[in-house]
Design a binder for these strands. Structure first.
Length: 597
RNA sequence: GGCCCCGUAGUUCAAUGGAUAGAAUAGGAGUUUCCUAAACUCUAGAUGCAGGUUCGAUUCCUGCCGGGGCUACCA
C-alpha cells in the first residue's frame, strides 16, 4: 500500500477508535510539512473539532499519541496549534524507496481506456512560426505527453490555416514582385520565403493606399478598394473555383511552407498524429447550420444571414452564415469539431490549445454545439494560454518586434555553446557531440522557460538577456542529471550492484535523503495534478525542486568515501532513482537530458 | 459601454482557505586536495487600495485604482 493511503487509513481508524466518529479516507487531506517544522506530513485538525468534541490542539495531541502507538509507520509527532505534524519512520521511507526502485514504471499510469485529442500549433501558412507559437507548441506537446503518462490515449493534431485571403496575398506578391525564386534558389526556408512575400504585399498595399489617399480619396474607401487588395480577392475566388494556375501555385507555395514548418518541428522535437487542413474543411458546418436554423435553433435576418442568439447566456448575437450563404470562421469550427468526433468516435475530450485572446470565440463555439444537442459538447476544452510579451511590450509584426522561432532556437543554441565553452566542459567531445549538446541545452532552456510559468498567465520573455542557465532553469536540471550520471558511471566501473538486502545497512537517513524520498514518492501525484490541471508548470516546479534537493545532498555527502558498502550501494541506487525520475519528468515537458555536460 | 483575465521582493515567477507568503535572479558575505562550482551556505528585501465572509484570506465576495484582452458579414 502507498504511504499516504496507509497514513489516511490509520487516521481514519484513529477517529473511529478515539472519537467514535466516521471519517472517510477522501475527507482526509495530508499536506507536506513546512520546512521550519519537524515532520513530513501534516494533518490539519481545525475542521474536525465537531467530530472530536475537542479543541484543535487537543485533537492533534490525541491523534498523534494514538498514531505513534498504533503504527510503526509514524515515529514521532508534534502539534502546533491545529497542525499535527507526523514524522515517518526511516524504515517506512526505505520500504517506499525499495518499491519505487523496483518499479521501473514509476511515473506511468496504466491505461484508463480513454481517448483524448489535443490540438496545438495550428499556424497560418503566410507567416513563419514565432515566439507565441513556441509557447503554444511546447504547451500542447507537453500536455499530450502528460495525459499519455496519465493513461490516456492521445491524438495530437493540428489544423492548418492553409487557405484564405492571407495566403493569396503572399501568392500575388510572389507573382507580381518576385523573380520566380524558390527556397532552393534563394537559399532560405520556405516558410520564411512565403512570409517575406506576405510582408512585401502589405508594404506595397500600404504604399498604394497612401498614394491614392494623396490623390484625394478617403482612407476608408481606399483601404477596401485598393487594386492590390481587389486582385488578391479575385485570386481567392479563382482558388475557390480551383483555377488550375492559381491552385497549382497555392500547392507549390504551401509545400514550401510545410517543408519549413516540418524542419522547425523536427528541431523542436515535437510531432503530430494527424493534420487537418482548412482547405478540406472550410465548407463544412454550413449544412449543419442550415439544418439547425430550420429546427429553429438559429434565426435568419431579412438579408438572409443566419445568426445565433446567445443573449440569454450573457453573450451577444453571433453571425454564422453571411447573407450570401458563405461561412465564417466559427461555422467551420462547428464543422471540424463534428468531423473530429466522426473520425474518432471514442474521444473523451477535445482540447484546443489556443491563445487566450480567443476565449470568447471558444465560449461561443462550445455553447453553440451544446445548443445543437451534441452529446460531447461538454467535453470540449479550450486550453488557453497568455501572450508572451517582450520587454518592449507586445510583439507586433508591423513594428518588426516579432521574435522568429527558428532565430530564437538558434540563438539559444549558440548561447548554450558559448557558456559551455567558457566553462571548459567539452573536453573529449567530438564536434558533433558538442553541437548536439548545445542543441539539447539551448532547447531545454527555452522549453523550460516557457513551460515553468502557469499557462494561463501572460509572461515576459527577454531575448537580450537571453535565458539564464543558473537557478530555476532547464540547464540546471540537466546539469543535475549529468552529475548523477557521472556517479552512476563510476559505480558501474566499480561493479556496485544494489540489492534490497543492502537497505539493512542503512542505520539512519539524513535530512536530504528523507526530503528526496518524500518527493520521489510524490511524483505520480504531481503527474496526476498536472494532467487534471492541464498544466506542465506543476511538473516543471516539481522537477526543479527535486534537482535542487539532490544537489544539496550532493554537496553534503561524499558518496564514494563511505566505508559502509551497503550504505554506499543504497546511495548509488538512490541517485539512480533520482536520475530516472528527472529523465521521466523532463520527457513529459518534452525536454531532453544529457549524460554529460 | 459590456464581458473576461491579471496586479506578490528591484526584476522574473510560486503559494487545493492554513503555520513565520516560497524560489530564482540582481545586491552583500563565504565554500574548490575529495563523485562535474552551470553547484552549495549565510544575508537583505514583497501581497495595488478599502471593506466584507471565518478559527484563519495572496486565495472567496463587493467597491475603487492600475495593466491587458475580447466585443468584425477577418481568419
Amino acid at each position: 500500500m502507498k504511504l499516504e493511503e496507509n497514513l489516511k487509513s490509520i487516521i481514519s481508524q484513529a477517529f473511529t477508535e478515539l472519537f467514535s466518529a466516521q471519517l472517510g479516507m477522501q475527507e482526509i487531506k495530508l499536506q507536506p510539512t513546512r520546512k521550519e517544522f519537524e515532520g513530513h506530513y501534516t494533518f490539519v485538525t481545525f475542521p474536525f473539532g465537531k467530530l472530536s468534541k475537542l479543541s484543535p490542539e487537543q485533537t492533534g495531541e490525541k491523534l498523534g499519541e494514538y498514531l505513534v502507538g498504533s503504527s510503526d509507520v509514524i515515529s514521532a509527532y508534534n502539534v502546533v496549534k491545529g497542525f499535527l505534524n507526523l514524522t515517518i519512520a526511516d524504515p517506512s521511507w526505505l520500504q517506499t524507496f525499495a518499491s519505487i526502485y523496483n518499479n521501473s514504471d514509476h511515473g506511468t499510469f496504466p491505461s484508463n481506456g480513454e481517448e483524448v485529442m489535443v490540438e496545438y500549433s495550428s499556424p497560418n501558412t503566410n507567416k513563419p512560426l514565432h515566439l507565441g507559437h513556441l509557447r503554444n507548441i511546447f504547451l500542447g506537446y507537453s500536455v499530450s505527453e502528460i495525459l499519455q503518462a496519465r493513461g490516456y490515449k492521445v491524438h495530437k493534431v493540428q489544423i492548418i490555416n492553409d487557405r484564405g485571403i492571407h495566403i493569396c496575398k503572399s501568392m500575388l506578391a510572389w507573382q507580381k514582385f518576385g523573380n520566380g525564386e524558390t527556397p532552393e534558389s534563394a537559399g532560405i526556408k520556405g516558410d520564411r520565403l512565403v512570409g517575406n512575400y506576405y510582408v512585401e504585399f502589405e508594404k506595397r498595399y500600404r504604399q498604394q493606399v497612401a498614394e491614392l489617399v494623396e490623390q484625394g480619396q478617403s482612407q476608408e474607401e481606399v483601404e477596401k478598394n485598393a487594386p492590390l487588395l481587389l486582385e488578391a480577392q479575385q485570386m481567392l475566388k479563382q482558388w475557390e473555383q480551383k483555377d488550375p494556375e492559381v491552385y497549382g501555385l497555392w500547392k507549390k507555395m504551401n509545400g514550401w511552407v510545410y517543408d519549413g514548418f516540418n524542419a522547425t518541428y523536427e528541431a523542436m522535437g515535437v510531432d503530430f498524429h494527424k493534420l487537418y487542413y482548412e482547405s478540406d474543411t472550410y465548407l463544412s458546418g454550413r449544412d449543419e447550420v442550415f439544418k439547425a436554423e430550420k429546427e429553429g435553433l438559429f434565426f435568419k435576418k431579412e438579408d438572409g444571414s443566419i445568426w445565433v442568439d446567445l443573449t440569454d447566456d450573457g453573450l451577444d448575437q453571433k453571425l454564422l452564415l453571411r447573407s450570401d450563404g458563405t461561412s465564417v470562421y466559427i461555422t467551420q469550427d462547428i464543422g471540424t469539431a463534428m468531423g473530429r468526433y466522426n473520425d474518432f468516435p471514442k474521444l473523451k475530450k477535445l482540447i484546443y490549445t489556443v491563445g487566450n485572446e480567443q476565449e470568447y470565440h471558444f465560449k461561443v463555439l462550445f455553447l453553440i454545439l451544446k445548443k445543437m444537442g451534441l452529446p460531447w459538447a461538454d467535453e470540449l476544452y479550450h486550453l488557453s494560454y497568455g501572450m508572451v510579451d517582450l520587454p518592449s511590450g507586445k510583439m507586433k509584426s508591423r513594428e518588426g518586434t516579432v521574435v522568429d522561432a527558428d532565430d530564437i532556437i538558434q540563438e539559444m543554441t549558440e548561447t548554450a555553446g558559448k557558456h559551455t565553452e567558457e566553462l571548459g566542459k567539452i573536453e573529449g567531445f567530438t564536434d558533433e557531440q558538442a553541437q548536439e549538446l548545445y542543441r539539447i541545452l539551448g532547447l531545454g532552456a527555452l522549453k523550460y522557460f516557457l513551460l515553468k510559468v502557469d499557462p494561463r498567465k501572460r509572461m515576459l520573455f527577454n531575448p537580450q538577456e537571453s535565458i539564464e542557465f543558473h537557478g530555476n532553469t532547464g540547464p540546471f536540471i540537466q546539469y543535475t542529471h549529468a552529475r548523477i550520471s557521472a556517479i552512476l558511471r563510476k559505480a558501474e566501473e566499480m561493479g556496485l550492484q544494489f540489492s534490497e538486502s543492502d537497505i539493512a545497512a542503512v542505520a539512519e537517513l539524513n535530512e536530504y535523503e528523507r526530503n528526496v524520498l518524500f518527493m520521489l514518492n510524490d511524483f505520480e501525484n504531481k503527474i496526476d495534478e498536472a494532467a487534471s490541471d492541464l498544466s506542465p508548470s506543476v511538473l516543471a516546479q516539481y522537477i526543479y525542486d527535486l534537482g535542487k534537493e539532490y544537489n544539496k545532498f550532493y554537496a553534503e555527502i561524499s558518496i564514494f568515501n563511505e566505508p559502509n558498502e551497503g550504505l554506499l550501494k543504497f546511495r548509488v541506487a538512490f541517485s539512480q532513482v533520482v536520475a530516472r525520475t528527472i529523465r521521466k519528468g523532463m520527457k513529459l515537458l518534452g525536454i531532453e537530458v544529457p549524460e554529460r555536460m
